[in-house]
Design a protein around this nucleic acid. Structure first.
Length: 568
RNA sequence: AGGGAUGUCGCCAAGUUGGUUAAGGCACGGGAUUUUGAUUCCCGCAUUCGCAGGUUCGAAUCCUGCCAUCCCUGCCA
């Protein structure tokens, strides 16, 4: 899998700008970077950034680096690095270099000394609270630190002492000397370095001072000769600082930062903080829970890399904040899997049907197409027996109008088999339907001349004796409100959907599904797209539902219900 | 004394050197095909571009003012 097998996406302001710059000869090639902080798993919002970064570089003859932005050892871990690497690769992208901001710690340190020597940075020996209080407010300017005019030599001496470990955590910071009255708060002498005795996952105890994001990011971009540093809108205010640092440091290249709006999806959360809480507090089963919008979760849910990439291209890249309906994501999966998924039948909530005119003890093997629109994909064999199972929901004793499935005295087609008529409903003493007695019409058997007789409905089924039992996990949206994080009064976890996971242990599947392996995907006809769970085994098949099929009957049913309510 | 952004159909989003009929996708409504109420296929869906003025033969595109929303006061990224 290479970066190149993606089609060029629709036009957007970044692509247009780069195209123009390239046309003007500003760049020989475009080099981008994807810079996650390894403090959590990647989610669909990151995918948007990944797709953008790789697309721009690919389109303009360059490459993309994967750069771990690891400047805060207190929050970063190796396991996240590994997960991120796996996810980017799984999405289908090949980065040129695997980089770490920590690779540049020495250079960054030298840049800091350079700034001090130029009189553009100073050591502040006040505590965090004091510095915060002096920063001013949104409408009032800050006040200068008493250390602001410390001489370069003294600054250098203390800074070297900081690096050497001579001082306590928090006793000094290095600050840029810009403008305490700047309307942009990021320019009010931002902190560049802090003392932090924490073991770094890569550099160990080599350093006890660490650069801030602002001091690290632009310089790292320059070191890697990144031409376009694409990031999200909240960094827009940082761009003047990004530029100030690059303008005042002897960097080897001059990258430009361009901001775009981050992805929002309804009925879920896309902040690492909240995702982390869901995982840490046990609301979900780890970072790869299929209900999570993490790449790992979506992979386990059954999303394909293709569908995620397509989604990211469909939604576009702009600077306006937008919320994409979750259904758009599901749709891109459906579009992909509709083309590629082999068809099979599974009955989630079985109801026994006895075919009274079918010989007892006989198993007949039928050939069913793997894909109705693609006969070249061949057929599969499915066993038919006297006793079969159909979906409980496909039978109604007193159906509403337009119910085209099984009802007493009614006819329906068994997919890939023949038309049956419901002759008798067997119930227990409390009125629960136990089984149905049906007779089939041999003339209508698939392949027979009578097979084209029309009936309104076709239902799926499985042999009662030859099918396999399986566990099926049905996933639904994690939250029951469109924007769970919007409400300031309640915690977002209050909006968790209690039915986001429904486990069906009595499902029955076609026998060939015993051979299903991780990486396979299927359409269970009429019910949805499913994949084998990685934890499943041939002895105990488990399937996860990635998405339902579009269901216009559900829509009609809803309308009927509402119409009924309206009348009373 | 604030600064930075954004506002085109229910949701995304093209379109911005002003040029006449405002792409496309999703959703929605209608119809056809269908042994998945799936898929596929037709048709419909903004006299209008946050609002109000102005410039112009002509404005979503230029100017002025206003309104709404988002981001910024971590030694997080």
């Amino acid at each position: 899998m290479s970066n190149a097998d993606q089609p060029t996406g629709p036009t957007n302001f970044i692509r247009n700008r780069i195209r123009k710059e390239v046309a003007e000869g500003l760049h020989e090639r475009v080099i981008t970077r994807f810079p996650p902080e390894p403090n959590g798993f990647l989610h669909i919002g990151h995918a948007k950034s990944i797709v953008l970064n790789f697309a721009m570089a690919r389109e303009f003859g360059g490459y993309t680096n994967l750069r771990y932005d690891d400047t805060n050892p207190a929050r970063e871990e190796q396991r996240y690095i590994d997960a991120i690497r796996e996810d980017v690769a799984w999405l289908g992208f090949e980065w040129k270099n695997e980089c770490y901001t920590s690779d540049y710690f020495q250079t960054l340190y030298e840049y800091a000394e350079h700034l001090i020597e130029q009189g553009l940075a100073y050591v502040d020996s006040q505590d965090a609270d004091t510095i915060r209080a002096q920063r001013g407010t949104l409408t009032e300017p800050g006040t200068p630190s008493p250390n602001r005019d410390r001489g370069a030599d003294e600054n250098l001496e203390i800074f070297r002492g900081m690096r050497a470990g001579a001082y306590e955590d928090g006793s000094h910071v290095l600050r840029a000397k810009i403008d305490m009255a700047a309307p942009n708060i990021n320019l009010r002498d931002p902190v560049l370095y802090r003392i932090r005795r924490a073991r770094h996952h890569r550099t160990g105890d080599d350093w006890c001072i660490y650069p801030s994001y602002d001091f690290a990011h632009g310089q790292s971009d320059a070191i890697e000769h990144i031409t376009h540093s694409l990031c999200t809108l909240e960094f827009e205010d940082h761009r003047p600082l990004y530029d100030w640092l690059l303008d005042n440091l002897p960097v080897p290249a001059r990258p430009r930062q361009i901001e775009f709006s981050r992805l929002n999806l309804d009925f879920t959360v896309l902040s690492k903080r909240r995702l982390n809480r869901l995982v840490e507090e046990g609301y979900v089963d780890g970072w790869d829970d299929p209900r999570l919008p993490t790449i790992a979760g979506m992979r386990r849910r059954g999303f394909t890399p293709e569908s995620i990439r397509r989604f990211c291209e469909e939604i576009g890249v702009t600077k306006s904040e937008s919320v994409i309906p979750f259904g758009v994501l599901e749709n891109s999966l459906r579009n992909d899997l509709n083309e590629r998924a082999p068809r099979t039948m599974a009955v989630l909530e079985p109801l026994k049907v006895v075919l009274t005119n079918f010989p007892e003890g006989q198993t007949e093997w039928l050939e069913a197409p793997i894909h109705p629109q693609k006969p070249e994909l061949g057929t599969r064999s499915i066993p038919l027996t006297r006793e079969i199972l159909v979906e409980r929901g496909d039978f109604m004793e007193e159906p509403p109008k337009k119910f085209f499935r099984l009802k007493p005295g009614g006819e329906v087609r068994l997919r890939c088999a023949f038309i049956i008529r419901c002759d008798k409903v067997i119930k227990d003493e409390s009125g629960n339907v136990l089984e149905l007695h049906c007779s089939f019409d041999p003339e209508t058997r698939t392949g027979q001349p009578g097979a084209d007789r029309k009936v309104k409905g076709t239902i799926h089924w499985v042999s009662a004796t030859e099918s396999l039992s399986a566990r099926v996990r049905l996933y639904d949206r994690l939250f029951n409100v469109p924007n769970p994080a919007s409400d300031k009064e309640t915690d977002f976890t209050d909006h968790l959907n209690p039915e986001s996971l429904v486990i069906m242990d009595g499902a029955r599947i076609e026998p060939h599904l015993a051979e299903a392996r991780p990486g396979d995907f299927f359409q269970f006809e009429r019910t949805g797209y499913f994949i084998p769970d990685p934890a499943a085994s041939p002895e105990k098949p488990v399937f996860n539902r990635a998405a339902t099929l579009r269901d216009s009957w559900a829509k009609i049913e809803k309308q009927l219900q509402q119409a009924g309510k309206g009348r009373t």
